[in-house]
Design a protein around this nucleic acid. Structure first.
Lengths: 162, 162
DNA sequence: TTGATAAATGTTATCTTATAACAATTGTTA
DNA sequence: TAACAATTGTTATAAGATAACATTTATCAA
C-alpha cells in the first residue's frame, strides 16, 4: 500500500500562528508591526513558495493599496531586521522564518522545480563555518547557506507506508 | 617585534598562472577559450576584489572593444560552466576559482569592508549539507555557502612574528 | 577551396531587482 | 498642542540580467 506524503506542506506552520508570534515578538522588542508590515508578512506566509518584492507589490496593489517598490522594500527591511523573514540570495526572494523567536543560523533547501523551501538549522554547519573563519581571524557577520536541488515531490519519490 | 602580514594577497595565485591553467583545461575539454573569454577571465583575476558584470563591461570598453551586457554575461556563463570562476550570489559578483582543475564545493569568506574573498573547500561542510538533503530525500544540484564578515586586515588585527 | 553548418559575438530593446531623494502623513512625547 | 521622530507615499533612476535577432567567425565535409 503506497501512501504519498506531502512533506512540504506538512512543515508549513499556519499563517495565523506566524502572524501572532510576530505580533508578540515586536511588542516584546518595542518595535512596530504596522498594518503594512503585517500585511507583507502575511502575503509571504500565504505563499507556498518564496516571493519576490515585486510579486508582493502586486498583491498589495490588488488589496487596493497605494505603493511603489520602496514601500515593499522598507517593509521587507523591517521584517528582515526582526528576523521574521529570510532573504534567499540565490533567488532574490523572501520567505517566512520558521523560528523567529530565537537567533539561529539557517540553511535552506530550495527546490528548483516547485520553488518550495525547507529551512534547516543545523548547528554543526554553523560551527564548521565559524571555525574556518576563526582560523583565519575572520569575523563572521552573517552566513548564507542555500542548497539548490529537487524536493521529493518533484523527484516523484514515493514513500511506502510502514 | 610586530610583523603585519598581508594574508589576502598572499593567497592570490598570479594571473598568468590562472590563465595558463584555464588554457590547458579548455584544451583538454575541447572547449574554446576565445579572446573575449580569456580577456574576461583576466579582468576578473586582475581585480583584488570580485567584480560585477557591468564593471567588467567597463574594462572591456576601455580596451576599445565593442560590447553590451550580453557580451559579458555570455562570457561569464562560459567561464562558470567551465568552473573557471564563481558567482557570489550575495554580491552579484564574480571571482576567479582557485581550483579550477577539480570539481569541488566551495565556501566563501567575503569581507564586507574591502570586498576581498577567500575561497575555502571544506569537504565536511559539503557532507553535512548532503546528509541533511539525503535525510529529506532532497536531490542536491548546487550549494551556495557564503560567509559575510570582516577580514583580518580590515579588523586591524596585528600578527606577532614568532 | 568552397560551401554548409555550428558556434560565437554584436546589437537593440526590455525586463527584473533595488535604491536615492524628497514630500506627506502618522505616531509619540514633552 | 507643539515639536520631533518614525513611517509611508511618490517620482525617478540605478543596477543586474536576459530575449530576440543580426552578423561574424570557426569548423569541417565535399
Amino acid at each position: 500500500m503506497i501512501q504519498p506524503l506531502d512533506l512540504c506542506r506538512s512543515q508549513l506552520p499556519n499563517v495565523r500562528q506566524a502572524l501572532e508570534q510576530a505580533e508578540v515578538l515586536c511588542q516584546q522588542r518595542g518595535t512596530r508591526l504596522t498594518d503594512l508590515r503585517r500585511r507583507v508578512l502575511e502575503i509571504i506566509w500565504n505563499s507556498p513558495a518564496p516571493l519576490g518584492a515585486y510579486a508582493i507589490l502586486d498583491v498589495l496593489r490588488n488589496d487596493g493599496r497605494q505603493g511603489a517598490p520602496p514601500t515593499v522594500y522598507r517593509a521587507l527591511d523591517f521584517l528582515l531586521e526582526q528576523g521574521l523573514i529570510h532573504r534567499l540570495a540565490t533567488l532574490n526572494m523572501f520567505t517566512g522564518c520558521r523560528r523567529p523567536d530565537c537567533c539561529h543560523s539557517s540553511q535552506f533547501l530550495i527546490c528548483r522545480d516547485c520553488g518550495q523551501v525547507e529551512e534547516l538549522s543545523n548547528p554543526a554547519v554553523d560551527e564548521l563555518l565559524r571555525d574556518e573563519a576563526a582560523t583565519r581571524q575572520f569575523e563572521v557577520l552573517a552566513q548564507m547557506v542555500e542548497v539548490l536541488g529537487r524536493c521529493p515531490n518533484c523527484r516523484g519519490v514515493a514513500f511506502h507506508a510502514r
